[in-house]
Design a protein around this nucleic acid. Structure first.
Lengths: 342, 342
DNA sequence: TATATTTGCTTAATCGTTTAAGCAAAATTA
DNA sequence: TAATTTTGCTTAAACGATTAAGCAAATATA
């Protein structure tokens, strides 16, 4: 029953006594093939359970219709939502997606890039690992002449299309909100400065603090790897200060969660004693007690836009034209952890 | 600088004045090629920045070295961890992975299967969508003659390799634990019975209840889609009973979280009034207050085993032999939501 | 009616690798 | 020294699809 040998266009051609070329054209609805033949070909194809060999056509046409994805991890709501939206747009256009994870490791990211190039993807959409400073491997993608699109974690000096949110403005939004809540010593647990988004958040924080004439102290601005564990560490560090803050803005939700744990353990009232704000709108921020104020990054829009940008690039690859930079405005979601008036 | 045309073995051959065949063999360390030639080939290959064309070799060899993955979603800790472990094992053996998500939709799952078959994957590792009842598409994979390995969400009548945990025993473990905590009316918010794992958990629950001579009432066993929202719904339903339970065992962590929210809203003390147990060890279970007792499914082991099973299948494809069924023992993680003695 | 165009195919080359088969030169054995 | 084996390559045919070029037959145009 189970045909071990796969059906090829040659098999169909043999049945109908026509050439393989005619079969190929019939299947692609070529205008130079008669309707009668097309009909017959489709029929036999179905009968023999013909499945086109993607490898063969990809080889011949010089494109694989595969798009590579590199994300730090898939088990974050943000990334999995971006992925889903990219998939939705690209699948409709006949592209399939290969998802790879870097686990925030530079080394893994490099090997992912090699893997994807090896698989002959038609383009790569990526969000960089935290560790990544050396851009050599991303240059490698560019030098292959296939489109590279970055989102969220990008790099200014790489000169490629980028989709992200306005991190600088988001920091302003957050500081403004905390000021309105009556906070006077606002700390920031930020990410690594070499990553564009975290740098922007830090710059936004600094400028906003200045704007509101609040104390801008070295001790109140700490750099973190933004894991849960490091969020705990850095919160403890802030609590140990002579003059601890009355509000903490953490640049990522997981780290904010770590900070919240420490505050609970120390019996510090949130938001009464210390207000807390995270970043990313991970589902758990709405679920913990107190729920955490955070920033929604519009992952769906980012995903769609990244996919559309890729499609545009493959359509007109020669346009060395202007780079696409989509900077979306983020949305502050105020929850219990920073809402004193209720 | 950027060579637009890609280097092929032909280019290498031309430089060295040997045949492309010799180059191919040299690159594969064929014993019939002299060390001198091999060395020269490797050198020129590096110089010209040669990258083998995967499509061509895959076409020729009849295998793509790609493995397809189908999971309900990637933003669950369980699945993302399984994926990571599969990746780790298979990458080492030269395989790359194409991850696809079904979003628990039968239709999406079918299109994922088509996609993967079209991409000429060498095998498929999958966890079925909740919705899936019709197995036609999975039969399609089998009939292609490529290995199909299921994990977690499997099906008994599909007759393929399977890796999962002992759900039946896990239910026993949970009920036993709750009994020890002094609970006397234990409810179960379970998944759909047609899914093997949920059915096993239900069977385990029933048998364990019987074993301990506890009331086995229709109202205490409810079927759920196991989303957060449905967890809320079903919890409300249980609270509305004339005789509500004093313990609830929910078959998935997200639904357990929904249940916990309702209990908090109703000011019901957990675990004092009602004890709560989830399933899956999602990270948030340790982070919410009270933290949720749950079951660790050994996602790393499952991933590794799934990958190894695939490798074994491709090594000896003809062995129609015994099916591989790996049933791992799960681990109960007792947390605040069910721990009355502290 | 003669010529030009369109229709509906076929032929053959190609994409880049792999590999079975073959063949001369070198090395080994008898 | 002659016969055999081994070494180190080459030649050519695949893998399955696509596509430029070509060519009869049918149809349209002058």
């Amino acid at each position: 029953m189970t045909n071990k040998k796969k059906t090829t266009i040659k098999d169909i051609a043999n049945v109908l006594n026509i050439s393989p070329a005619a079969v190929s054209k019939a299947l692609h609805d070529d205008s130079r093939i008669s309707d009668k033949t097309k009909e017959a070909v489709r029929e036999v194809a179905k009968e023999l359970n013909y499945q086109p060999n993607h490898l063969a056509s990809a080889l011949r046409r010089g494109k694989s219709n595969l798009v590579g994805l590199i994300v730090p991890r898939t088990n974050s709501n943000f990334f999995s939502s971006v992925i889903q939206n990219i998939e939705e747009v690209l699948n409709k256009k006949g592209y399939n997606i290969i998802i790879t994870q870097s686990n925030e490791s530079f080394k893994k990211e490099c090997s992912n890039i090699d893997t994807l190039l090896f698989t002959q993807v038609d383009g790569i959409i990526a969000s960089m690992a935290n560790e990544t400073i050396n851009l050599e491997y991303f240059e490698k993608i560019k030098s292959k002449g296939i489109p590279l699109i970055l989102f969220d974690r990008g790099e200014n000096n790489l000169n490629v299309d980028y989709i992200g949110i306005n991190d600088y403005d988001s920091s302003h939004m957050i500081v403004e909100h905390l000021v309105k809540q009556g906070c006077k010593r606002i700390a920031h647990i930020g990410g690594y400065r070499h990553t564009r988004i975290f740098n922007n958040r830090i710059r936004g924080y600094i400028d906003a603090i200045k704007k509101h004439n609040l104390p801008l102290e070295e001790d109140l601005l700490v750099e973190s790897s933004l894991t849960i564990e490091d969020g705990r560490e850095k919160m403890k560090q802030l609590l140990a200060l002579k003059k601890p803050p009355d509000a903490v803005y953490v640049a990522a939700d997981y780290a904010a969660l770590g900070a919240l744990q420490v505050l609970e353990e120390e019996n510090i009232k949130v938001p009464a004693d210390i207000a807390l704000v995270g970043f990313g709108n991970e589902p758990f921020t709405a679920l913990v007690t107190p729920s955490i104020t955070t920033v929604n990054q519009h992952s769906d829009e980012i995903g769609k836009q990244a996919a559309l940008t890729f499609l545009e690039r493959v359509k007109s690859p020669n346009k060395k034209q202007t780079l696409n930079k989509f900077i979306l405005e983020a949305e502050l979601i105020v929850r219990e952890s920073s809402n004193k008036k209720r």
